[in-house]
Simulated assay, not measured.
Amino acid sequence: MTLTVVGLDGSPLPPGAAAALAEAELVVGAPRHLAAVPLPDAAERVELGPVEPALAKLAGRRAVLLASGDPGFFGIVRLLRERGHEPVVLPARSSVQLLFARVGRSWDDVAVVSAHGRALGPAVNVCRARGATAVLTGPGAGPAEIGAALDGWPRTLVVAEDLGGPGERVTTVPAAEAATRAWHPLSVVLCLRATDAPEVPARGWFAGGEPAPPPGGWALPDTAFEHRAGMVTKAEVRAVALARLAPRPGTLVWDVGAGSGSVAVECARLGAAALAVERRDDDAARVRANAEAHGVEVRVVAGTAPAALAGLPRPDAVFVGGGGPEIVTAAAAAGPQRVVVALAALDRIAPTRAALLAAGYATGGTQIAASRLAELPDGAVRLAATNPITLVWGEVQDR
Rank of each mutant, 00 (worst) to 15 (best):
T2S: 15
V5T: 04
G7H: 06
P14F: 05
P15F: 12
G16F: 12
A19I: 09
E25T: 13
E25S: 12
G29V: 04
A30H: 09
R32L: 11
H33F: 07
L34E: 08
A35Q: 13
V37S: 14
P38D: 07
A43S: 11
R45P: 10
V46M: 06
P50A: 11
P53N: 09
L55Y: 03
G60S: 11
G60F: 04
R62T: 14
L65E: 06
L66D: 02
D70Y: 04
D70T: 07
P71N: 13
F73E: 15
I76S: 07
I76A: 10
L79R: 15
L80F: 09
E82R: 15
H85Q: 13
E86A: 14
V89T: 09
L90N: 10
S94W: 02
Q97K: 12
L98V: 14
L98W: 01
R102L: 09
G104D: 14
G104Y: 12
W107T: 09
S114H: 03
R118C: 03
R118L: 07
R118Q: 07
P122H: 00
A123Q: 06
V124L: 04
R128E: 03
A134T: 05
T137V: 08
T137Q: 05
A141P: 02
A144H: 07
A144F: 08
L150S: 10
T156V: 15
G164F: 02
P166Y: 12
P166M: 13
W183C: 03
W183K: 03
L186W: 10
L186Y: 13
L190W: 09
L192N: 06
A202F: 11
R203C: 09
R203H: 10
R203G: 05
W205A: 15
G208M: 05
P211L: 10
P211I: 11
P211R: 10
P215D: 09
G217K: 08
L220M: 10
P221N: 07
D222I: 07
E226Y: 05
V232K: 01
E236Y: 05
V237K: 00
A241P: 06
A241V: 15
R244N: 10
A246G: 01
P249D: 13
D255N: 07
S260Y: 02
A268F: 02
A268S: 08
R269K: 11
V277M: 02
E278G: 06
D282R: 14
D282Y: 08
A284G: 11
A285H: 12
R286I: 06
R288F: 12
A289T: 15
A293F: 13
H294D: 09
V301G: 04
A308Q: 09
P315S: 04
A317E: 00
A317V: 00
A317G: 03
G322R: 06
P325S: 12
I327Q: 03
T329Q: 14
G335H: 00
P336S: 00
D347F: 03
I349N: 03
A350Q: 14
R353T: 10
L356Y: 05
A370D: 11
P377E: 10
D378S: 06
